[in-house]
Design a protein around this nucleic acid. Structure first.
Length: 104
DNA sequence: TTCATGACCGTAG
DNA sequence: ACTACGGCCATGA
């Protein structure tokens, strides 16, 4: 059984809200989301939350990447994420790496 | 309760 | 740019 929004822990709700705020065509990192949600070292929590709740809560999970600019997912989800980002006009290098504009 | 695991992170070589 | 390593911490076995 999947939990409803109201059954989630407060921190998890904040994480979800922050992810929803990421604007179209832009990406954010697990770490940034954690900080904005008030969790100092909560990057792993963010990752876990996304892993389990992305589709159930309509989250733009593809806009969340690792703080070093790499995609965290393994194939085949990895390819899907790259495709979705591309569709929003996000730039990425050949090897599937993002943002060379700002490293970390 | 202990132990392993992971959609992570930062530093060092 | 890439790998290795230690640290981090919620989760589940």
């Amino acid at each position: 059984m999947v939990k409803t929004y109201d059954e989630l822990k407060p921190e998890t709700k904040r994480i979800i809200e922050e992810i929803r705020k990421i604007p179209y065509g832009q990406v954010s990192s697990y770490r940034d989301i954690a900080y904005r949600a008030g969790l100092i070292n909560g990057a792993r929590q963010v990752a876990r939350a996304l892993h389990g709740l992305s589709e159930a809560h309509q989250l733009p999970w593809w806009r969340v990447i690792r703080s070093d600019g790499n995609i965290a997912l393994h194939e085949p989800e990895r390819s899907e994420q790259i495709q979705r980002l591309k569709a929003e006009g996000v730039k990425l290098s050949e090897r599937g790496r993002f943002v060379p504009g700002q490293k970390r």
